[in-house]
Design a protein around this nucleic acid. Structure first.
Lengths: 340, 340
DNA sequence: ATTTTAACCCGAAACGTTTCGGATGTCAAT
DNA sequence: ATTGACATCCGAAACGTTTCGGGTTAAAAT
């Protein structure tokens, strides 16, 4: 409620001087500044961010754009971990963040540019976009600073953060191979998702490197969904008794596979080794606990936020991207082939 | 980038008329309106929300205030479910939401009133505040519309949503009693939390109603934390072999108890029945799957959002609160006392 | 022919800031 | 006495809207 104008009349200085005093300009007398600050404190002045942003033509608000905020995503805690990462990094800056969830329906009404302009967003962190998302092109074309999660595009105003997924996946597959597994199936996520492409690539490269043939029909698609993965895995496991290990592009799907195996009385890990991806909370508690690959969404989001604020403040960082470590976490869903 | 002024010069009408046309005032000619709308469409005009809010002295932004956005809260998906609830309800309105996380440190710098004023928040949904939180008083005193989750306070601008936890807890305890359990312990959450008080009350009332004595030392405190709950439960279970069931104020703590029992080789449910609260994703996957009480944070948030927007738009709702149903979900962590 | 009414339109102020381009005064150097 | 430099301050415009209080015109009522 109290404005800069109130402080001006209180202290007898002009609005200009009050503003300059409060913003630490150096052409205002120390005493004056003190008086103004005291007055501001006294009446509990807080700057009206709206007015500030309006006149400065830019805000300190960064948007977190997610493809669709859907309830199932609470199964893995990934989304929330990301939020925490952003939140923590931004905690003692003067940036704020808004959560923006798009859907194809919404995109019809509002272009990406419009989305940014209406709130004068300073920048965005973007996660979970499909390869063919119409926003993607707009994002790279726009001059709004953006950080993409797991989508490897860079230009003047676009950077990304990802993790060395491919390496970790290769590690995982090679680990299975060392355990004696030679028929390793792969459960992929939805085709559109960028991470699906990447992870599949990791799987295929690993097979090549260890000299195992890549059977196209060893690749299933579970749409990143537990139930779908289970439905897909059931007939697959029945028809492919030679398969002794399956690597999944997400823990959620791996849990689906676990469930399918249980229904078919296939013992995990004795008869079937299963590896997931994400290291979600659940993976520690499933039976058996999942061997999985951990990439910390918290750290990715935190790194992305730092990349973004640096970009906004025109601090040129050396690299237009950040690659974090992901690592294989061995638990109890994997063991030697034929270990019975 | 394009403004109302651009449309004005394009079409030859005044800024006033353009504004009125775009806002569906009825004193503008149908043709004029059409022309203006076409022009707006053509140049991809989006209103500058900042400017709108500034002049109207209020925004369409609602804040979601959480006590502390901490990483562990991704363990239960509660926070995210709430966000989804809010997000879905707000999806096709013109409201937006920002996530605000406070901490005692931040509260020193900014009063609740200031928090609202700087962004001209239209209203808040408030969750997870401790009983002694300094903001609480400010919230009830302020004239900013607020909806409290699980804190039962109402006045002109304060409403709440909760669920019939007490009833459900009574159901749970009575269910245990029917199974033959007579020594039922209780694992409470952190003392400050309002829900702790409520849930404890439910436990005590249930004991009274079925005529069981309330031993003060049957009440533990696990701070809503898995590890702490485990640490507290270990000695308790050792010292109280007569206890055959423990009811926990959260699933996370119940899982801690499960883990304690496992370490002590106390079979659940044969030797010990355990009930949780929240029906988090994990509870379905723990071993054994947890009997628990489900209150949907999604629905609570959704209901709260509706309550809030109604309040903001001065639509007087009949009730200053909403009470949702919570219910006992029986899974495999409970069974007859002495069922071996 | 005058007044009333309605439909349609617009100028200008307001919201709370920031910032450009001076203005004023003081003091030391010339 | 003039100049220059510096420190300190301020007026006014600008940001993009909304809205109050009118104004103009043409048709309808007197």
């Amino acid at each position: 409620m109290p404005t800069i104008k109130d402080i001006a009349t209180m202290t007898g200085f002009s609005v200009t001087t009050v503003s300059r005093a409060l913003n630490d300009y150096n052409d205002v007398n120390a005493q004056t500044k003190k008086k103004i600050e005291d007055a501001a404190e006294k009446i509990g002045y807080v700057p009206n961010i709206l007015a500030q942003n309006l006149v400065m033509k830019k805000s300190k608000t960064i948007g977190i754009l997610v493809n669709e905020l859907k309830r199932e995503s609470s199964k893995d805690g990934l989304m929330l971990e990301m939020l925490c990462g952003v939140s923590d990094v931004l905690a003692d800056s003067d940036y704020e963040f808004v959560l923006l969830s798009t859907s194809t329906a919404k995109q019809k009404n509002k272009t990406f540019k419009q989305l940014c302009e209406e709130r004068q967003l300073a920048g965005l962190i973007i996660q979970g976009l499909k390869n063919d998302d119409p926003y993607l092109e707009e994002i790279v074309d726009s001059n709004v600073p953006c950080v993409l999660i797991d989508i490897l595009i860079t230009n003047e105003t676009t950077k990304y953060v990802t993790s060395n997924q491919i390496e970790s996946i290769k590690d995982a597959i090679k680990y299975l191979h060392r355990l004696g597994h030679c028929a390793i199936a792969y459960m992929n996520g939805s085709d559109g998702a960028h991470v699906s492409t990447i992870r599949k690539q990791g799987y295929l490269e690993a097979l090549k490197e260890i000299g195992l043939p890549a059977h196209e029909n060893y690749i299933m698609n579970g749409q990143f969904d537990e139930d779908i993965a289970k439905k897909v895995a059931m007939p697959f496991l029945l028809n492919h008794p030679e398969v002794t290990a399956v690597f999944c592009a997400s823990d959620v799907m791996a849990i689906g596979v676990l469930s399918a195996a249980k229904d078919l009385s296939i013992k995990v890990p004795e008869k079937l080794s299963v590896i997931g991806f994400d290291n979600i909370v659940l993976s520690r508690y499933s039976t058996p606990p999942l061997t999985t690959i951990s990439q910390s969404p918290y750290n990715m989001a935190a790194a992305g936020t730092e990349l973004l604020t640096a970009m906004i403040e025109k601090k040129q960082e050396k690299t237009p991207f950040k690659i974090l470590n992901s690592e294989l976490i061995i638990r109890e869903s994997t063991t030697f082939q034929g270990s019975v």
